[in-house]
Amino acid sequence: MGKEVKKGKVEGRKFIKWGLAFCFINFLLVTFNCVAQSDTTFKYKGILRGTANFALGDMPQNKITNAYLTGNLEYYADSKISIRGDLYLFLNSLTKNSVLKNNDALYFGAFYHFLPNRHFDPLLGFQPGISQTQFIGDNGTLEGSTICPLTSFMCGFNYYAEQWFHFQLNIRYTIGEHVTTGDETNISEISFNFGLGFNINALKKKK
């Protein structure tokens, strides 16, 4: 049992290290490209963009690392403000013997874009949300799932490489608590996702 737990921890750490290294290299590539092209402009107003990728989340209070399938849809109402919804589908915990069995979440809010109409688009956002969370209780039985209110702050960037697609990196800090008849559990989490997205200009007039 002890050996299995140790093996699981080593595998989890290895996965995170490789993932972080991969993302860091991608980040450098994107940054290099965006510095090279920072003089070009890319009109934001009317952009409708979406992406689906995988996310990793760490709950420091519970020492649990989770994997999610995540997607978001965003509309640029003007060059500095966008409205965005995010969906996180819980795949599994990467931590062995995790007590967390479900943590699907839905967020909706607004983002501020610091460099309007550029290919490189650093952003900061505030998104309240809700999650459907389920834990295994102290006696080993599965508790009922509960809807938990969440607040989240997000930073990251989009890089609009071409007319139709972009790269995206997001770091989200979620604050929340699983409140139920079992043990109340802090479900605050820092999560990270990186991926490719597609965009169209919804306001573009047909010729």
Partner: peptide
């Protein structure tokens, strides 16, 4: 808009958190 709310001075002086629109 979207909103987060903190509720204070309810039962047994506990503090709650909420979300809404």
């Amino acid at each position: 808009g979207m909103r987060n709310t903190i509720s204070a001075f309810t039962d047994a002086q506990s503090i709650g958190m909420g979300a809404g629109g």
